[in-house]
């Protein structure tokens, strides 16, 4: 075993890349759940985003267009969920699960002609001399744009929920849709917008996998990332910065265990492979174990069907 082959700087830099898909999907789902909707279709929206982004990028030759296509694809699929749950009042859990299955199948169909193709490369952002800084340069200033966008999204969502009136209305809708309706807010519109945002974010996360992280298209390539994103939102107590911690923790352990595998650590591979899931959930459970106050963060109307008649 040769642990010296692991460079901690590269490890940190690569954990940011590894975490970005989950981070994007999770921050989108956080907004959806804050509005009181439980969309279990994150995995499905991610994989549809992955193939939409991949196809658009390959056909147009532009990764940027690819990411836009991915966001639109994810949002379009989420609208299917939105219309079913908000207008036809279908059960959110069942519809979300169906959305995942549907997304997996749809993406496989679209992806038929794209197996084995390389997508156009996404360049890193050029920070000029900053990138040459010792330590910080490697960690912070040599990434592609999406990494920074995902961090910006976390900050943006945090500020939106905390300081803006629209964010307050969104939280109010998620807290008690009946009271929000009584005050004259359009619960359905607010929720549809949140669902669309969640879909777009999940789509971006999926495209990050297929265009940058892997980068190629294989069926079922999200491999459960959407479910991890869902778990991170819950265990992060619906707080944006904790979502960041959870996602980076998961990405970090993933990268670390891959490095350990490569270094030949004398532990069965299966244990290493499962370690990111176990460690992430353990840590987040401990963080959120303080009941009482922590449970306040949960949107009280989460998953409940709203009908304006009452």
């Amino acid at each position: 075993m040769d642990l010296s082959s692991i460079n901690p700087l590269v490890l940190i830099a690569s954990l940011m890349v590894a975490s970005t898909p989950i981070l994007l999907a999770a921050i989108g789902e956080l907004v959806v759940e804050k509005s009181g909707v439980l969309n279990l279709g994150v995995e499905g929206m991610m994989i549809v985003g992955a193939i939409c982004g991949f196809a658009v990028a390959v056909e147009s030759g532009s990764p940027a267009l690819g990411f836009i296509g991915a966001a639109l694809g994810g949002a379009a699929l989420s609208m299917l969920f939105g219309i079913l749950t908000q207008y036809f009042l279908s059960n959110q859990v069942a519809t979300g699960l169906a959305l995942t299955l549907f997304g997996l199948g749809l993406s496989a169909l679209i992806g038929q002609g794209y197996i084995g193709i390389k997508p156009p490369a996404t360049g890193d952002v050029n920070f000029g001399p900053l990138a040459d800084l010792p330590v910080l340069g490697t960690i912070l200033f040599r990434h592609d744009l999406m990494v920074y966008i995902s961090l910006g999204l976390i900050a943006g969502v945090w500020a939106f929920l905390k300081y803006s009136r629209a964010g307050l209305i969104l939280r109010a809708v998620g807290e008690s849709h009946d009271a929000a309706h009584a005050l004259g807010y359009n619960v359905r519109t607010v929720r549809l917008m949140a669902i669309g945002f969640g879909g777009a974010c999940a789509g971006l996360g999926g495209a990050y996998l297929s265009l940058i992280r892997v980068p190629q298209w294989t069926e079922g390539m999200t491999a459960g990332a959407g479910w991890i994103a869902l778990a991170i939102v819950v265990f992060a107590s619906w707080r944006p910065w904790r979502v960041l911690v959870g996602a980076y923790l998961f990405g970090g352990v993933t990268v670390l265990q891959l490095n350990l595998q490569a270094a030949g650590l004398d532990v069965p591979v299966q244990y290493l492979s499962m370690s990111p899931y176990i460690i992430t959930i353990l840590v987040l459970v401990i963080i959120s174990s303080n009941r009482g106050r922590a449970s306040l963060a949960a949107p009280a109307a989460l998953g409940r069907v709203f009908h304006a008649s009452s």
Binding site: L168, R171, A172, E175, S176, D178, A180, A182, L183, A300
Partner: peptide, 20 residues
């Protein structure tokens, strides 16, 4: 003023007032 309060438990007083 509603019979069943149109208030949001997890929000503070000022936020509740602002919503109305």
């Amino acid at each position: 003023v509603f019979q069943h309060f149109s208030l949001f438990e997890a929000l503070n007083v000022a936020e509740n007032v602002a919503l109305g």
